[in-house]
Every structure is written in structure tokens, then in C-alpha cells.
Nucleic acid binder design. Structure first.
Lengths: 146, 146
DNA sequence: CCAAGTAGTTCGCAATATGAAGTGTTGGTG
DNA sequence: CACCAACACTTCATATTGCGAACTACTTGG
């Protein structure tokens, strides 16, 4: 067993997940480009949609080294989409938050991604959509998958 | 409407898809790193698992500009995982194919990704796994989503 | 008060991605 | 046949991404 690519056939689920992931990434890339930001920048903005976050928290959330995040935030800040605010209680730390422009862009990009993904899943039967949502939610709720 | 992040709540499906995508990307990144290649390089190798492909075909398959692909193939070729073979019938074109090392690495990486994703979905009930696979396959079979 | 830990940044480096421009090659049309 | 548009791929300049190691500044426990 585990001879060649055909191994995929065992379940097909893993392969399907990889392909779905590629599809989502493509949607994300398209939307980001239409809003004149990179996918990473768009993702950063979206993470901030429900409140400012510290660098460490953000790096954990985005699976990035802190040093990588510094640069990313630098570039997004230079575009005026985000600001660093020094934390009053801990002068080492800072909170990264959206500017007005950033919030607008983030909301639009988020809506566009959602809309397009809903369009993709919209071709499914309603029952399947429900089931899909339920199963994925279940999957993501397991420890380690969140 | 479309006020803030809470908009996600409408269906939750789009958000779940995004999160699943991130999960898959992380698995891919981990596995790639363990095999000492970048995710992009691993992806390239996997595309070649069932036969050599031309640059144009590859660029379409990977949603990359041809110029981007040239560099990617260069680096992977430099590592001895892939070779360019001039096409006899069309001297403009070339076929990119796996070397022995490349094929081994690709197979291992592919197996590792599959294994890890199966582990992730293994926590689901069997019936849900089946349903999930069926729905995703259906989704991916729709024109434009493949 | 001092040692250890924590939050971020800086630096050097390699990889990734794009678009514009360039090199050959092919194939059809006049 | 000669030409030229289309095609396959490469080159180049540029920006972004990402890592790890070393660094600064601040906080906190003892």
C-alpha cells in the first residue's frame, strides 16, 4: 500500500479537502487583488474586524513568527489601514487596530469572500449545505483543529 | 446589514470553509517543512505525481504566472527533484518531470498530508465522514469549482 | 534590586509572485 | 515561399513574504 498517487482513492476526503482549500485560497486571492491588497494583508485586516490585537496574539492567530508579522504590519500601516497603539499598562506591548479606511476595506473584503463562497456552495441542495456547515463546524470545534 | 464581522453569522458556512482552508494550509506547511521543501515546491511535486507537464499547463494548474513558475521550477530543479525535458515535437515547449528523488519525496509528502488530514477527519462519526466526502466531491464537480 | 521572562523590532537571507520585455519556434495566410 | 501573429518559455526589476538569530525595552517574581 501507499504505492503511488492512487493512494488518494482510499477515502478521497483528504484530496477533496485539499482541493477545497485551494478553491478558498483562490477566492481569497481574487478578492484581495480586487481590493488592492495582498492576501496576507487582507487576512490581517479581517482578524482585526472584531477588535484590536497585540502582536503576539496576532502571530499566534496567523501562524506567523513575530518577526514576520512586524513586517506585515509595517506595510499595512504604511498604507494607512492599521495603526499601532502603545499599551498603557504594558509599555512593551502595542495593540494593532484598524483605521477607518482599514475597517471599510476589511468589511468589504470579508463580505466579498463570504458572498463568493456562498455562491460556490449555493449550487448545493439546501439540505447538503446545512449538513456541510454542521459537519465542518463540528470538525473545527475539536481540540487542535480550531 | 453587512455591518461588521457579525455578518459571518448568517450562514457560518463561508467562515467554516475559510477556517478549514487555513487548517489544510497549515498541515501542508508542516509536512513540507518536515520534508525540507517549501509548500509551493511540495505542491509542484505533487502535481507531477501522475505524469510530466508543460510549463503552461502547470501554471494554469497552480494559478501562477508563467514567469513565477519558471523560478519555482528552477529552484526545484536545482535541488535535483525535477528535470526539464525539451519536447521533441515543439522545440519551444518542455515537459517538467520528477526525478527519482523527486518522486520519492512527492509520494511521501502526499501520503503524509493525506494521513494527517485523515487523522483530523477521523474524529468525526463515520457517517459524517462519508457525507462530508460526498458533498465536497459534489461541490468540486460543479463547473468552475474544479 | 536583580534575574528571568516577555513584547516587539531589526537584520540578513532565501523564496515567492508579478508584469513587462525579450527569445525562439510554430503555423497559417497571402 | 515569405511573413507575421500567436505561442512557450525566460529574463529582469521590483515588492512581498517568511524565517531565525540577535537585540532593545519593559515587567515581574524572588
Amino acid at each position: 500500500m501507499t504505492t503511488t498517487a492512487e493512494t488518494t482513492a482510499t477515502s478521497g476526503l483528504a484530496g477533496a479537502l485539499v482541493r477545497v482549500s485551494a478553491l478558498v485560497q483562490q477566492v481569497f486571492a481574487d478578492v484581495s487583488r480586487e481590493h488592492d491588497v495582498t492576501p496576507q494583508q487582507a487576512q490581517l485586516l479581517c482578524k482585526l474586524l472584531d477588535g484590536s490585537l497585540g502582536m503576539t496574539e496576532l502571530s499566534r492567530l496567523m501562524n506567523l513568527e513575530k518577526s514576520s508579522l512586524t513586517g506585515l504590519v509595517d506595510r499595512v500601516e504604511r498604507r494607512g489601514l492599521v495603526t499601532r497603539v502603545r499599551d498603557l499598562h504594558d509599555r512593551r506591548a502595542c495593540k494593532v487596530g484598524l483605521t477607518c479606511d482599514g475597517a471599510r476595506l476589511a468589511a468589504q473584503a470579508h463580505a466579498a469572500v463570504t458572498e463568493r463562497l456562498d455562491a460556490v456552495t449555493g449550487e448545493l441542495a439546501d439540505a447538503d449545505r446545512q449538513r456541510l456547515a454542521a459537519i465542518l463546524t463540528d470538525l473545527l470545534s475539536r481540540p487542535g483543529n480550531g
